[in-house]
């Protein structure tokens, strides 16, 4: 699985951090998304997909 983020689209709602804290974080200075794992291991795939679904700004793209 490959994950891409679009920081320009992010609105800092933090949904991704709640859903997949090992894959996403938020920058301290502006609250925008940080990708911790570009290629999450299989046990985090479901949570990563859920984060992409929750994101209100469609700022997370998951390629399988």
């Amino acid at each position: 699985m490959k994950v891409r983020i679009d920081v320009d689209a992010c609105v800092g709602a933090g949904q991704c951090v709640l859903a997949a804290p090992d894959v996403f974080d938020q920058r301290d200075e502006d609250g925008m998304v940080v990708l911790l794992l570009e290629d999450p291991p299989s046990h985090l795939e479901a949570a990563t997909e859920h984060a992409a679904l929750l994101c209100p700004a469609l700022a997370i793209v998951v390629d399988r």
Partner: peptide, 15 residues
């Protein structure tokens, strides 16, 4: 909107 929201967002991060 984006400019103002970004100034505020660090106050509301999960952390």
């Amino acid at each position: 909107h984006a400019r103002l929201r970004r100034l505020l967002t660090p106050e509301f991060t999960v952390k």
